[in-house]
Design a protein around this nucleic acid. Sequence first.
DNA 1: TAGATTGTTAATCGATTAACAATC
DNA 2: TAGATTGTTAATCGATTAACAATC
Lengths: 222, 222
Amino acid sequence: MKRFSYAVLKRLPRYYQLLLARQEQGWEFVSSEILARSLNVDASLVRKDLVGIETGLPKVGYHIPATLWKIRDILGMNNVNEALLVGAGSLGRALLGHNEFEQYGLKILAAFDKDERKIGQLLSDVEVLPVSKLENITRRLKINIGIITVPPKAAQEVAEQLVKGGVMAIWNFAPVSLQVPTKVIVRNESLAAGFALLSYDLQQELFRLAEPSDGKLITKED
Amino acid sequence: MKRFSYAVLKRLPRYYQLLLARQEQGWEFVSSEILARSLNVDASLVRKDLVGIETGLPKVGYHIPATLWKIRDILGMNNVNEALLVGAGSLGRALLGHNEFEQYGLKILAAFDKDERKIGQLLSDVEVLPVSKLENITRRLKINIGIITVPPKAAQEVAEQLVKGGVMAIWNFAPVSLQVPTKVIVRNESLAAGFALLSYDLQQELFRLAEPSDGKLITKED
DNA sequence: TAGATTGTTAATCGATTAACAATC
DNA sequence: TAGATTGTTAATCGATTAACAATC
């Protein structure tokens, strides 16, 4: 079982997306050069990434259906990952309604909320249950993945209940650092942090445009 | 003007979040060691990251309010970034209702959709307008940022209208590679790709548990 | 002062690119 | 065959860690 680095894993969904688009256009093979251009990397990096995933054919490229399948396999898209979601706010509801997840094998079985008025509602065919039942249901259904979309203040407690219920991984959308046993996998997802990166690049660009065009910037350090 | 690498920029929102939490607990200073533990990195990396951001005091650490301010400044959190959002589906609505963005200076002025029934609705105090007006309004309001939350098939066309309207940056949530002029900054955000990383780690862990505990895995290459 | 913690340098590690022989 | 494209090696680049003198 080959172990892929985080850097490679982050590119796999991009490759997948591009291969799928080419397939829809009727292509059967694609070269490393074409994939590389869309990701803004060197073609040799694409070839290196694909070593151990799929063997390419000199003069032809990589076979799209075979490569798609292999990527699906590596990313666990061919399995079903059952998860519970906690926090039926707008972000939670967006995740419940996100079609793309199906492709990635994510199946959210139920949503939990503490708001009485939300209990019993069906959101994208998923029932909202009281958060008091979270630990119990997690255990009974042997759920591995918990998704946290509650407000920051409530996140730690929810995480603890999920851990007590036996989850092995937490996908955390609340902007807090969760304290959980080291064996529990935590992935922090921050939409705001993503925006910050865009905002930084934009500021740099705006600053560049405001400068004399000879490329010599007035640097300011402290 | 110091230029920060992507690796550092990705950590700044985490530092920000941790500093804020400590501040709420009444702390005034924090050490690199404490920040490092939460991010699972070496303390010297934290100190290196903070060079050019804030000077720490030996034996004391970094002054929390000052450091928070500097990070806010770097990430553009002290400015207001006006944006338009296209696609008032569940993800679009979640972004419109996401409180955290306010802190990061993101202000979404209007939402656009092609669905007649959504036009005129108020979502989190933001009006939904017909997508036919997108280019015009982008230009008239001199908007720099467009947010795309439409289905994949529609994303390229929306991107083109935003570009024609003069945006400098696009935050793209649709799982497609957008073709835009090189001067336009594009940040692709994929919730599904984020999940794939969690799913990979989980699979690895499940595999590990299924193996004999002597740590010697049966490796399989092809 | 003594000792904790910074800022900085050197060492290590990992990821990316460049170059090119192998190959279909 | 000729030529395009792979797989792989070596070179480069950048990020992280280790070590430690400076310092308050």
